[in-house]
Design a protein around this nucleic acid. Structure first.
Ligand SMILES: [Mn+2]
Ligand SMILES: [Mn+2]
Ligand SMILES: [Zn+2]
Ligand SMILES: [Zn+2]
Lengths: 156, 156
DNA sequence: GTACTATTTTGGACTGCGTCCAAAGTATGA
DNA sequence: TCATACTTTGGACGCAGTCCAAAATAGTAC
């Protein structure tokens, strides 16, 4: 039996083709929008409703089987890499997202300098900058026009 | 002459009542949504269009005079505390946002464990947890029903 | 296998946040 | 004071995500 099925059952979620296909999809892309996931699932199942995509992704996040990140100027991104408290690098020009291991250790950044009495359970770290591809070359530093339009990779 | 006017001019922005009112508003609230800002500005100017609010807030962010943060499940928040690379504590229950000084120092967290070739210019750190008010009291630990509805403070 | 029930899926309507656009108004500098 | 570039306005619009009620289906008990 599929390991994904077991995973779902062990978290009290019933097993449906839609959920299996979404888990499958999540395992194939490091970070993916709900729309991209829909597109990908439709390639395998033929069809899935938008609502089911959101239902499932939200359920997975709730159960800790997936994580949602919300970069500025982008729809939410989902990933199945959870539990390692890793961080993200986002390119301001093209929107590319890269994973970064946590600098501090295993459960790291959960120490704020002053927690204001909050009980902290997660630290969400995003580094902003420019990816290698988008960096101006030596020859045209200061003259390169920054691309405003983020090109979003299509799922193929 | 108003210091806000000078600030605008020094960044190449012309001085308008709308912009002054927004700067004024930003200085009064640590974190504020575009809608809350609109509401607040209307108390002083009487009227302002939604578009002007966004135009101005975006311009301020672009010039580095304001900062936009984008928590999950909340419209963007704006603040005029910039340049100190401070972080945020957000309560999962009530949505309350608190500032935290950067743990590491002045321009700190800009060191990722592996920058993947990115040129990093900002680190955005959000701690998630529960604020003191929302924490279950000793007497009813494990029995308190978590409030799902975030109460958003009204601007009064 | 059949029947029952709780859960899930579906698609269509809907909401909220934010942007686009073109016309009217205003700040700035000559 | 005039000319012009920039800003403001409000109405239309777009996109991400949710709500809802009906239909379908997974899990369970027989
Ligand atoms: Mn990741
Ligand atoms: Mn802040
Ligand atoms: Zn890039
Ligand atoms: Zn709280």
């Amino acid at each position: 039996m599929s390991t994904h099925a077991t995973l779902l059952r062990s978290h009290g979620l019933s097993v449906t083709p839609q959920r299996l296909a979404l888990l499958q999809t999540l395992s194939q892309y490091p970070h993916i929008t709900a729309d991209q996931a829909t597109e990908a699932v439709r390639k395998s199942l033929g069809t899935i409703s938008r609502q089911s995509v959101y239902n499932t992704l939200n359920a997975l996040v709730e159960k800790g089987l997936a994580r949602r990140i919300q970069p500025i100027d982008s729809p939410a991104l989902f990933e199945d890499r959870v539990g390692d408290n890793h961080h993200h690098l986002i390119c301001r020009s093209c929107g590319d997202v890269a994973d970064v291991d946590c600098a501090v250790g295993f459960r790291p950044c959960l120490e704020a300098s002053d927690d204001n009495g909050f009980i902290i359970d997660e630290a969400d770290v995003t580094y902003w900058g420019e990816c290698p591809k988008c960096q101006p070359k030596i020859s045209n530093v200061h003259t390169t026009t920054k691309t405003k339009t983020k090109t979003r990779k299509a799922i193929s």
